[in-house]
């Protein structure tokens, strides 16, 4: 019987454009990563008739994604060079973090998100890579049990790359 994956099997890692990249493992994420790939299609109907009509591929769409995480410190390396990177300063590309965009100079600042889903049987782990991820919104909120960062953005690619990892 196939074993379904749950949020317990996931791990989200953020990398920048340096070589070798700066790496941040999001250890306090809520397990609510969500992404949507869209496909646009142009429908051409012949005088209203679908049967006589045809379709054409439409414009490519970038991939929307979102996730949230608990936060402790907002500032890490941007405050103290010997501290680890914090999630907030990474997503905001704050100065003094040393982060480099994965896009060309002059373009929007982007990062790479790698989401690994572990196989509970230990054999068929998969890595889902989102390239050129740019931030659209970052919502910070307080809570009784934990304060949360909610990230919403897009990956400038039609779909993430999925690959098997050992």
């Amino acid at each position: 019987m196939p074993i379904t994956r749950t949020l317990r099997d996931g791990e989200l890692v953020i990398k920048d454009g340096a070589n070798p990249p700066l790496v941040l493992t999001v250890v306090l994420d809520e397990g609510d990563l969500s992404w949507t790939s869209q496909q646009k299609t142009i429908e051409i109907k012949d005088r209203g008739s679908i049967a006589s009509g045809h379709t054409r591929p439409g414009e490519e769409q970038s991939t929307e994604l979102s996730f949230s995480a608990k936060w402790t410190q907002l500032l890490g390396r941007s405050h103290q060079p010997t501290d680890p990177l914090a999630l907030y300063e990474t997503l905001m590309f704050l100065s003094n973090t040393g982060l480099q965009s994965t896009s060309q100079p002059g373009e929007q600042q982007t990062l790479t998100l790698e989401f690994t889903v572990m196989d509970p049987a230990g054999q068929s782990h998969e890595k889902i890579t989102f390239l050129k991820v740019y931030r659209e919104s970052l919502t910070m909120s307080e809570g009784d049990k934990a304060n949360l960062i909610a990230f919403s953005g897009k990956s400038f690619s039609p779909a993430p790359t999925v690959s098997r990892v050992s």
């Binding site: 949020l7 317990r8 099997d9 996931g10 791990e11 250890v27 306090l28 994420d29 397990g31 572990m118």
Partner: peptide, 8 residues
Amino acid sequence: PIARRVAS
């Protein structure tokens, strides 16, 4: 609490 397997 429910959490990632890799989380502390």
